[in-house]
Write a protein that binds this DNA or RNA. Structure first.
Lengths: 213, 213
DNA sequence: CTAACTTTGCGAAATTTTTAACAATCGACC
DNA sequence: GGTCGATTGTTAAAAATTTCGCAAAGTTAG
């Protein structure tokens, strides 16, 4: 059953794979050629079994008594995740947050290329951020098509997030990264990931509370 | 068993509570006084049973045939999560990201007060961001104590994240929000939440891939 | 070449999390 | 005050996820 074609892969597993890729990349940069599930697990704070089980959904990549060839496993996982392709992304909402996102080099380094920026405020439209000109949101539909945008990053205020999302969904975009502090509704074939530091903090205070006085 | 004192609450449940708080706050702002688990679930994209089950870990807050009083439930959940307290936070790493974090008004609005900022580069130290003066990282230990810092937000480059974390942990800080693209190791009594947009994107491309030719 | 040791991959067991089912209770209306 | 529809809270079942246990296979050392 190695190299299973597509789905009924648990979503939790898919969400752990990028971490494995990152850890393997670091090992590769340190010229480490072979790694065991034990070592990889230690680096990531997960159990070795977890890693072996996760990998087994996609194939057999290791050697008994030895471990995994770092370069090979990296290649395989990057392929599984589609990280061997280039992806196009657009940012909507070019305020402080949106500008920071556009300027962050980390996306491009990983193959996520920012190819368009949109805003609704006439003030910002036309201004340049890096190599992009901020476009009027009215041009969204046309540009998604012409630039074949795969992913949309939403950085508008909470009040506008749902309506912007609806427009994005209508353009047949299937992946949204949402920085707005609101849970947007989308059809089930559209993936959304939330970036929400306030929620993250709020789930920690539950534990801090009992600690504190 | 209503009003269970403390732990053996599943962590998944704790992480959903802040979302409920947010949705309830929105309902409150719209002057809605009562909400059913069905309605709340629809707003959040979770099932009504999920909500009722989650709430049942902490007490009995609803009325059969009617639903939940929004203000009351909000109050209770905010208390459960410790959101009725003020919390102090410090940011380490005042580059583009760190500055954006310090300037973001969303934290203060929710009771997370930024009370210190640290950097290691002599260039930035002493400069003012909002009402804070950027301090030398050497003053970390002293300041955590003197300002009773509850939460540390890490916004340094990946290479420095682990060593900064180690220092933070030594100061007995029990909650870390990590923006660095690396999984930091901490003792089990320290909570870490990762903010990692690249990982989020990378777990979506898995699904996009099979879609995309 | 053999023995001792290491580590994978996988089926099965254990645990955790979600979902279903339903009695109990509330509110409204007649 | 009795009936009807709505909705909670909880126990039980189902589903999902993690962990265990171990045979098979590779490595190292003598």
């Amino acid at each position: 059953m190695p190299g299973k074609n597509n789905s009924n892969i648990p979503e939790v597993v898919v969400q752990r794979l990028p971490q494995y890729v990152r850890a393997l990349t670091q090992l590769h940069n340190r010229n480490i050629e072979v790694v065991s599930s034990k070592e990889l697990g230690d680096a990531l704070g997960v159990t070795p079994v977890q890693i072996r089980k996760d990998l087994s959904y996609f194939g057999r990549f290791g050697k008994q008594g030895r471990g995994y060839n770092v370069v090979f496993l990296l290649q395989e996982l990057r392929h599984v995740l589609g990280l061997d392709k280039q992806w196009t992304a657009a940012v909507i909402g070019i305020g402080r947050l949106g500008s920071a996102i556009l300027s962050y080099p980390g996306f491009g380094q990983e193959g996520f290329n920012m190819v368009a920026a949109f805003d609704s405020a006439p003030l910002g439209i036309g201004s340049r951020i890096g190599e992009l000109i901020v476009q009027n949101i009215d041009e969204l539909e046309r540009t998604v098509k012409s630039k074949a945008i795969d992913i949309v990053i939403i950085a508008v205020p909470a009040e506008q997030a749902q309506s912007v999302t609806d427009r994005v969904v209508k353009c047949r975009v299937k992946a949204i990264l949402n920085y707005a502090p609101i849970k947007v509704q989308v059809p089930s074939d559209v993936r959304v990931r939330e970036i929400d530091p306030v929620l993250a903090l709020q789930s920690m205070t539950f534990h801090l509370k009992s600690l504190h006085d």
